Amino acid sequence: MPATADHENVARAFLAARAKKTPLTLYPGAMPQTMADAYAIQDRAIALDGRRVGGWKVGRIAPDLVDRYGGNRLTGPIFVDEIHDGSAQPAMPVYADGFAAAEAEILLCFGEVGTRDYDIDSVRDCIVDVRTGIEIASSPFPEINRHGPAVTASDYGNNKGLVLGPSIVGWQDADLIRMPVEMAIDGETVGAATMEAMLDGPFGSALFLIEILRARDIAIPPGTLVSAGAITGIHEVRPGQRAEALFDGKIRVGCSITSY
């Protein structure tokens, strides 16, 4: 969908708020009512931003909203300069007066995707690595998640960065769906779950991403990451806190939360 003047104005307002680190007390324009409108805003913002996209976050659309929005997932860009090595215990900045959260996620890395058609089984053929990680969700609009998935998607899908944890050795044969995952904030466990409740799991997120990016005429170069969705929930954080995810009882990924 080509961007309209309204889409352009919303995109520019979010870019300005992110650049100036100032909160948006109101949504900067007419709230998008469809995913097509949301992605028109997002695509225009990506073009105006100019940074290179290194990956994409995928989030779930609530079951009661699937029919209205025509799908069960949404996506947003993760820029290369906001992807950090978890072994360095990175400090991840968020919008202190906006919305901020940390999410334990499985990260998939694409190899050559090409033009072939995929299904939930064959999509594994174009995945070259599976890693652990934490997605940092943050937006200058504090109510980003309170007005439906189109609003969430319109501001980069509410993404503000990615912490790369270790790869999962032998992921091809691992039972990823049943892998236990825990999330802690300041050492206190705030969520524990497996991926059994995540629709069709992380590979379903990869399949969704291929289909939605092709529909938007966006290339998927080798090395593109997929942050496949929150496993233990969306855990709100604030500057000064520390987030740590534990995968399979042995793989730890952590970061500190800071403000600008």
Rank of each mutant, 00 (worst) to 15 (best):
R116F: 02
R116P: 00
I120K: 06
S122A: 10
S122R: 09
R124D: 02
R124I: 09
D125Y: 03
D125C: 01
I127K: 03
I127L: 02
I127M: 06
I127P: 02
D129F: 02
V130W: 03
V130L: 07
R131E: 02
R131W: 01
T132N: 14
T132W: 04
T132P: 06
T132S: 14
I134S: 02
I134E: 03
E135I: 13
S138Y: 01
S139C: 14
P140F: 09
E143L: 12
I144D: 04
R146H: 14
H147F: 15
G148Q: 11
G148P: 13
P149E: 08
P149G: 11
T152K: 09
A153H: 07
Y156S: 13
G157A: 12
N158L: 08
N159T: 14
K160S: 15
G161D: 08
L162H: 09
V163Y: 05
P166D: 08
P166F: 07
I168V: 14
G170H: 02
W171D: 08
Q172P: 00
Q172R: 15
D173V: 10
D173E: 15
A174L: 14
L176G: 04
I177S: 11
I177L: 15
I177G: 00
P180K: 05
M183F: 14
I185Y: 01
I185K: 05
I185W: 05
D186L: 05
D186G: 03
G187I: 04
E188Y: 02
T189F: 00
T189Y: 04
T189G: 00
G191V: 10
A193T: 08
T194D: 12
A197D: 14
A197Y: 01
M198Q: 13
M198R: 00
L199I: 15
L199C: 01
D200M: 13
D200Q: 11
G201P: 09
P202V: 13
S205K: 05
L207K: 10
F208R: 08
L209Y: 07
L209P: 04
L209A: 08
I210A: 08
E211R: 15
E211N: 15
L213Y: 04
R214N: 13
A215R: 15
R216S: 07
R216I: 07
I218W: 01
I220G: 06
I220W: 09
P221G: 04
P221V: 11
P221F: 06
G223F: 10
T224P: 06
T224C: 13
V226P: 01
V226N: 02
A228M: 06
I231P: 03
T232D: 03
G233Y: 05
E236D: 06
V237Y: 05
V237I: 14
R238P: 12
P239R: 10
P239L: 11
G240Y: 04
G240I: 04
Q241E: 11
Q241D: 02
A243T: 08
L246V: 15
L246Q: 04
F247E: 12
F247P: 08
F247M: 13
D248L: 02
G249I: 07
G249M: 08
K250H: 14
G254F: 02
C255H: 09
